[in-house]
Amino acid sequence: MSARPASTRSGFAPTLRAVPTLLRIGFAGVVAYRSEMIVWILTTNMPLVMLALLRAVAAEGPVGRFDAARFTAYYFATLVVRLLTSAWVVWELVYEIRQGTLAAKLLRPLSPLVPYATDNLAALPIRGALVLPIALVGVLWAGPERFTHDPLSWLAFVVSVAAAWAVTFLVMLAIGTLSLRWESSLSIYDLWIAAYFVFSGYLLPLELFPPRVLAVVRWLPFRYLLSFPVEIALGALSRREILLGLGAQLGWLAASALLAHLIWRDGLRRFAAYGG
């Protein structure tokens, strides 16, 4: 069986009508699997390990512009942004394609991409509630003066986190859909995440990298997925830099949306619902 692209069968208005219901379903799912979600959140412990490491390093003297308190602020902000921008659609998609259950989603008069997005978004309230105490600990430990006090910057922070989530989601969607064509698409995701860990500032603040590496990072999307919002929160950027960064994020958003769209359209043509 081959399926036609779902987008030809669904209008915009019916999709919009379905979104609140889908969000409710997604939220119920999150509540049902709440203990799993807590384990997932605990899995994101790398920033704390790096914080322990770099506080030990900073005890012997500051590293670049970073002293112990700045490292604390940095890694807590990193942890918060990472937890707020994470998505898991790539695993879901690869699983459903392998098992053939994607077929059921394709039969609905709604693009399957919409429930994937609402499932991920519906987790936000609970995630947010769990992230709040983490943020509070970070602010108290590092000291409030380590973060920006400019309300406009915080507004930009919210926008940039939303954009970072969207790009993460779309890239995951693109890679997941690739498994319609190629069974090892999860290997591509592994490559992506390995590069993300280094070049997004997740492991080490980007400004501590040698200039040669920074020259490369400038042309990669990873900074805009994590480090950029963190830099805003720490007050490390001027208004002009923030605006330029938001513009770059918008560019990456458009590029990843286009990529996801093309791969999805191409992949559905060859979808055969095997195994289902």
Partner: peptide, 29 residues
């Protein structure tokens, strides 16, 4: 082949932060 490329790539990326830190410090702990 995929695994071999992955392994080298993964190790290389894991080394970047380490090398960057040692660029600034002769010894850590």
């Amino acid at each position: 082949v995929v695994q071999a490329i992955m392994s080298v790539f993964w190790t290389a990326t894991a080394l970047v932060p380490l090398l960057a830190l040692y660029d600034r410090r002769p010894s850590i702990a």
